Each structure stands twice: as C-alpha cells, then as structure tokens.
Computed example of a mutant assay.
Amino acid sequence: MRPLDGVTILDLSRVLACPFASMILAELGATVIKVEQPGDGDETRSFEPKVQGEGGSESAYYMAFNRSKQSVTVNLRSPEGQDVIRQLASTADVVLENFPVGTLKRYGLDYDRLRAFNDSLIYVSCTGFGMTGPYAPRKGYDTVFQAMGGIMSLTGEKGGGPVKPGLPVADLTSGLWVAIGILSSLVGRGTHGQGCHIDFSMMDGQVGLLSLAAARFFALGEVPARMGTEHPGRVPSAAFRCRDDKWVQVTGSDQHWKPLCDLLGLTEWADDPELGRNRARVDRRLEVMAGLQEAIGKIDRDAFCRLCDDAKVPAGPILSVDEVLTNEHVLAREMVASFAHPTIGTFNAVPVPFKFTGYDNPSLARPPLLGEHTEQILMQQLGMSREAVQALRDKNAI
C-alpha cells in the first residue's frame, strides 16, 4: 500500500515541470494516465540524449520524467478526441495541464467545462506567467523564468555576470510546487468535499523561492550581489580549492570556528575572541577567506573532509555527477535504481527520495511506450467496445 493508491491523475502535460510532478505522484501510488499526441507523443520523446538498445532507441530525457505512467494517445483537436478527454476527466481525481492560456478553453477542456462532468475535480493549470496579469499571454522556458524570477541575478562569481545553474531549476522546482498543490488539494477535498482550480505560474514559483534574498531586501533594502559560493551573512560558508585541485564546501557557525582553526593550525584565530563571532568574520571577510584558502589549499580534499568529520565541522566534497551516483552513502540509501525497458533493456534512474514506515516505499517502473495503454484504458475505464475504439482510430481521434 502506497500513500496515493486509488488516486487517478489525467495528465495532459508535456516536457518537464508537470511531467516531473506527475511522475513523483505516480511513484507514490497514483494512477497517472499520460495523454500524448498520436504519432509523435510528448515532444521530449525526440530529445537528446538517446539511449540505444537492441530494440531501438529511447530518449533519456523522456525517461527521466515519465516513469510509472500509462500512455494513451488522443488528438485534442478532434471533437471525438475531446470527448474522450471529457469522459476520462469524469473518472479522474486530478487533471494536470500546461498548455498556453486559453488553449484548452477553445477545445472545451477547461476547468469550467470539465467540472460540469466531475464537480469534485482538482484541475491544475501550470503556465509560464499565470492565467492573469500583463504577462499572461507570454511564453517562456526554464531559463527565462530563472532570469525573470531573480535566481540568475544571484548566481555567479563576484564581479562576474549572471550564471545559469547547472540544472533546470525553474522547471524542477515548478514540478515540486505543482506536486505540493495537488497533494494539498487532495487533502482539502478529503476534508471539505470540494474540488478546485489551481492557477500556477512558473514565474510565481521562482519568485516564491527568493525567500532569504527577499527578506534581506525587505529588511535592509539590499539588492543581493553575486557571491559565488559564499554566503552573504555567514563566514565561512564557501567552496575552497584543495591541494589536489578538488573542491570542498565548508559551512560553519560560531561553535565550529575554533575546531576548524585548530585542525588547520590557525592557532591565533582559534584563540581570538573577536573572530569567534560571525559578525566579526563577516566584517573581515576578505582576510578570513584568504587565510582559510591558504590553509585548506595545503591539504587534499578527502583528507581535509576526514579532519572536518572528526572535528564535527560541517564540510563536504563538491562531487561531480559520476562521483555522486557512485557514492557509498547514495548507494546505501538506494538512490540509484533501475528498470527494465522493452526497447533498451535495463536502464538506471534516480528514484523518488522518500523512505516510509507505515506505507510501502515509492515504486519505480519503466516509462510507457507511446500509446501503450490506449485500448486498455478506453475499454476498461470507459467501457468502450473494441469496435468503438477502432472507430476512434479510423477518425484519427486516438
């Protein structure tokens, strides 16, 4: 038994943010029916990189965000296809979509229309800039939302230009926001007995992450500058280059300052009561950072990390992706798993990171082939005959 067993999500979304959300919920037990365009499917099925197997190739991008779902192909531009969606929505708990504002209303598949068939429906609209406001008609991508939401202005080295984080942060965090919205709405419906429409803007999602930067602006009128790996209000909290040219992140509070200085042989600093307070270290940031870098630069990364562990100083190696995915702790926590795929064989994946007591842990199943479950779902869930399904195929509705 998993937490979301019995929940059905009709997923009309594609690409990354919303598919990420629905994949998380699928592996927590929800039945996710992914609706794809006949012929091509979700456009990410064609995205690089491709994984080659004995039966052909598959997109690693698609597989990363569409595990554990069922795939049906429906032509949303077809009146008959639109009717199929309305029937499926009448049996679903959640409808998830990320079409441009107004698109599904033209197809008769907006919240007001589908609510008429299912008054307890939870309907999530994930758009770039929301359903209202001056930017509502605009389109955007992950990097646009990073740019306009502030995170890119905060990321980069001192005195340098803005830098894009190494992952699609706006897409991934939007997926998490969407999952939170769906889960909270399911709880609300269980308590109050009513469905709802969620208007989620990816731009809003990025503004919602500003948190500490916004607090500093509200409190001090400060526009945070780019600081690389350093923290604006804490020293030390930064990456340091070690003797072997590998990097380590050290982040400590006042209670860690003396142990850090002791293990580095910085005796004068260890015994300096002024530097024992963070405020003084922030005021003397350039001096302190230079001294720490000189001392840490004389020790290999892994040896330095062991010293920090022994002294209970918070520090960690800056690991590359290959180091992370082969790390002993990551493997012990079962954060690398695999699935068997009919086209490419066995393929590794990063699972949903929850460990439950009282429920089964999240499952991990392969992504669906395009349209693999169309006939099954239409016949079993909607009660269609095989002849009726074929008639829809003949009309290019599915």
Rank of each mutant, 00 (worst) to 15 (best):
E268Y: 04
V163D: 05
C126A: 07
T267R: 09
K50C: 01
S13M: 08
V288W: 07
N327Y: 09
I24K: 12
A270Q: 04
N361D: 15
Y107Q: 11
V15S: 05
Q255W: 03
L319K: 15
L12K: 05
E97V: 06
A21H: 11
Q206W: 09
Q87L: 03
L109T: 02
G181Y: 07
P259H: 05
V313R: 13
D199G: 03
R138F: 10
A136V: 07
Y62G: 01
F20H: 09
L183Y: 02
T143E: 14
A349I: 08
P317Q: 10
V163L: 14
Q249E: 14
L220G: 13
R234M: 11
L369S: 01
K355V: 10
V51N: 06
A219F: 05
H192Y: 13
Q293A: 09
R115V: 05
H192M: 03
S68T: 12
A311N: 04
V187P: 12
M379D: 01
Q206G: 01
K164A: 12
A136R: 09
Q249R: 06
L96C: 01
G39Y: 04
L104S: 15
A270R: 04
A315S: 03
Q82A: 12
E36N: 09
A391D: 15
G181T: 02
N327W: 06
G140T: 09
A92D: 04
S185M: 01
P367W: 00
P353N: 07
D309Q: 15
K34R: 01
V95G: 06
V124G: 05
A215C: 13
A365K: 15
A64V: 02
D244M: 03
R77K: 14
I180Y: 09
T346F: 03
D245S: 11
R106L: 14
A215V: 07
A270F: 00
E36H: 05
F339Y: 11
V51R: 13
F356D: 11
Y62M: 01
P38C: 14
Y359A: 14
E323I: 06
H329S: 15
P134L: 08
T8S: 09
L121Y: 11
H341S: 07
K158T: 02
G102L: 11
P224N: 09
L260K: 08
K164Y: 03
T229Q: 02
Q52V: 15
A147E: 01
W257L: 12
M203Q: 07
M379T: 09
T357D: 13
E268M: 10
